[in-house]
């Protein structure tokens, strides 16, 4: 059991949980994830580790409550425990040790960008983070990323930072030159847009993919993604890949496989469904 030591609401539907997982806290590297089940009978869900405190033995998970399993997770309170946490899974992020990095985070993906920016900064890389949200209340991890370098905040409605998409600000950073590598984590359309943006600049771009996953150890093959025409398993071959080679259309398509189930489960959870099934 993994006791929750701290809980914080970061945006209207994004929650941070700091929970006990000493072994994972000790060895996890940026980019790695865990598979979590809040309680018996729940779905297994992959969540990237946003931060870790090895001395306290805790890891931080940043959860966007979209489906039944994630809603159950964020309903937990401090002192409650999470039943299953397996990991750290996946390959660590490919990092550079000097030069300049552009880190783009969208929505909850900003939390995944954070450990990458932190590791780059620790090695002496100049980090520029571009993060975004719909409006001010949706911007997360600004303070943490500010400790790792420059931060440019964008909001769709201009209520905070610059008005516009993260790609507009990212383009300006690329134009200044000297960017050695880019990292992009967020919704599929955002990652696709960033990959398309960096391509003409020949900037190597790493994206973190979030396909449907069951076991997370390579056994089920559900997290298949197409990387440069080759099928890869995101759990064991990724979850991070060369953004210029990812088939984002396929990823978006496969992510919609269970949409009907999800909508029904959410309707039931909201009490809108009178009859089960």
């Amino acid at each position: 059991m993994h006791t929750i030591l701290a809980k914080k609401q970061l945006s209207p539907n994004v929650t941070r949980l700091d929970l006990l997982a000493p072994r994972i806290a000790e060895i996890k590297k940026p980019g790695q994830f865990v598979i979590v089940r809040a309680k018996e009978g729940d779905e297994r869900i992959p969540l990237t580790i946003a931060d870790a405190d090895p001395t306290q033995g805790t890891i931080a998970l940043v959860i966007q409550a979209v489906g039944k399993a994630t809603r159950e997770l964020v309903a937990l309170e401090v002192c409650d425990a999470i039943r299953d946490v397996a990991g750290p899974l996946g390959h660590p992020t490919e990092l550079i040790s000097s030069g300049r990095a552009l880190c783009v985070g969208g929505g909850v993906g900003t939390a995944v960008v954070h450990p990458i920016a932190k590791a780059l900064h620790a090695m002496g890389v100049h980090v520029t983070s571009v993060i975004g949200g719909r409006s001010r209340e949706w911007v997360i991890f600004e303070e943490e990323l500010a400790k790792c370098g420059d931060v440019i905040v964008c909001t769709d409605d201009g209520s905070y930072g610059r008005k516009g998409f993260v790609t507009d600000a990212a383009k300006e950073v690329l134009e200044t030159g000297g960017v050695d590598i880019a990292y992009a984590v967020g919704p599929v359309p955002m990652m696709r847009a960033v990959a398309n943006l960096t391509r003409p600049y020949n900037v190597h771009t790493i994206v973190s993919l979030n396909p449907v996953m069951v076991d997370g150890t390579g056994m089920c093959g559900g997290c298949r993604v197409d990387i440069g025409g080759e099928t890869k398993f995101a759990c064991v071959d990724g979850p991070e890949f060369d953004g210029h080679k990812v088939d984002f259309d396929l990823l978006a398509d496969r992510l919609s496989t269970y949409r009907e189930f999800e909508q029904r489960a959410n309707a039931c959870a909201d009490g809108q469904c009178k009859i089960r099934r």
């Binding site: 009978g41 779905e43 069951v214 056994m219 089920c220 093959g221 189930f261 489960a265 089960r276 099934r277």
Partner: peptide, 24 residues
Amino acid sequence: YAANEYLTRVNLMEAYDLPNTNTP
């Protein structure tokens, strides 16, 4: 599906008992 995924969803994750379980 790979058979592993199909069977894991139904057996380990108990999708055979839908809608009483959570894995589709």
